[in-house]
Design a protein around this nucleic acid. Structure first.
Lengths: 244, 244
DNA sequence: CAAAGTTGGTCTGAACTCAGACCTTTCAGC
DNA sequence: GCTGAAAGGTCTGAGTTCAGACCAACTTTG
């Protein structure tokens, strides 16, 4: 009955209606897509016309974004039929870099991503395990797992790991969930580039992936969620010390 | 090692970089904020200059959005000191309306929202229960619960319910989580306007709210999550039948 | 080898968005 | 009553974004 606005809520709810300009958003999304390995080294992006339609952006704007990627060395472009924009970025080898130079706001966002991740990724695992997965879907998950388990170099492992998590989210078929996991993985990727990777961490992570795949394929939803929660917790513990 | 893009992933990941124009996005966000009861009937919105800053939008664009709201009868505007934009929308009484006239795409989005909700809201409950809640925060949650429990008319109950769920999310302090819950609640609100409300449903829902508040305040995270899951499941069962 | 088709490259005019300055109205406080 | 402050109302010029048409390069196919 109060005529006063719900004070603290308004602060939380009235968020920027959109982050940046369309051009910047395109650069960011495409760069993320490439860095997470959705388009691996050597693969060709969709044509400009199709990409523009997918991103709901004019071709002019999209082209500016691609030009920026080209300048940054992530892609190369060839004209003519059979041409297109090809990914040339070699996945960066993770290494200890200036994590100290991150702003306070960035740190808040990083910690926020860890909290959010612990909700959405276990949720995705739970949902995927409950779903009726087609044969193709099951194979896709196993393939993604195989890729991450067999990756040798840290940089490849990093990309394969992102793709594994994205694949799992994609299995749920939920657009919102996929977007949430993508956003979280992008931030995670950023953080992981700033720390040294230990063999032991990777081995541990791989065991969790394997358990996760088993649980999902067996339809054991609660088990899948628990495993993913532990997986998130372990990664988070590693990262929190860094940015804490 | 494959040079082909992760086919099904790209479909899922390359989403529109932003939904609509800034103007439309403002209208939508403000209308949602008002309809969900963050700004109740009779309350005054922040000044145009402040709102524009919050939404990261120019004042010109914001003013267009407000003009649209005014035209739609949601708000009224008075000039001069002490003036401002006041909410005039009386919360709509939920009623059975043309749920049949919804497009296939909209239905997909509705069902998606229900799935996503079952992940993020229980996650929010879990996180809130684990957090060290300040006295103010605890009081805020209890107040929001009291409001929803004591609401008499269905329309008021609907708004209070939204605010309760948003308040819980706000307690976690996670920007991404708050945004997720806001988005989900907005869609839910839309759906609930299309179905008749039963007294029994409301009573049942209120019991779940009470159990939820107890669990959160007691720091019983798993319990809080379970209760919220049941709450989401019950609402979803009600709605799924409708949108088939 | 020529034609057709697909792709990136370029240009244009309209619409949208922005930042900021300035005006007008209204109320609170002296 | 003045006066100042706070709010909405108005205007302008620059920057961004858009849709669409058209050009140029290159490959595939007949």
């Amino acid at each position: 009955m109060t005529a006063a606005p719900a004070h603290d809520l308004t602060e939380a709810v009235l968020r920027p209606v959109r982050g940046h300009h369309a051009f910047e958003a395109c650069v960011e999304q495409l760069a993320t897509t490439i860095r997470l390995g959705v388009y691996p080294l050597g693969s060709t992006l969709p044509s400009e016309r199709e990409l523009a339609a997918r991103l709901k952006v004019s071709r002019a704007t999209l082209r500016e974004a691609i030009a920026a990627l080209r300048q940054a060395g992530l892609v190369q472009t060839r004209r003519g039929r059979g041409g297109g924009t090809v990914v040339t970025l070699k996945p960066r080898t993770p290494s200890a870099r200036a994590a100290a130079r991150t702003s306070a706001e960035r740190r808040r966002d990083w910690l926020d991503a860890l909290d959010f991740r612990r909700i959405v990724e276990p949720g995705a695992a739970h949902l995927a395990a409950r779903a009726q997965l087609s044969e193709a879907a099951r194979a896709q998950l196993e393939e993604a797992h195989r890729a991450v388990a067999s990756a040798r170099k840290p940089a490849q492992h990093r990309q394969a790991d992102s793709r594994f998590h994205l694949t799992l989210a994609a299995l749920t078929g939920s657009a919102r969930l996929i977007e949430a996991v993508t956003s979280v993985q992008a931030t995670l990727h950023e953080m992981l580039l700033a720390i040294p990777v230990l063999e032991a961490n990777i081995a541990h992570s791989d065991r969790q992936h394997a358990a996760l795949v088993r649980a999902v394929l067996a339809g054991r939803a609660d088990r899948a969620r628990t495993v993913m929660e532990e997986h998130c917790d372990d990664t988070a513990a590693l990262l929190r010390g860094l940015v804490g």
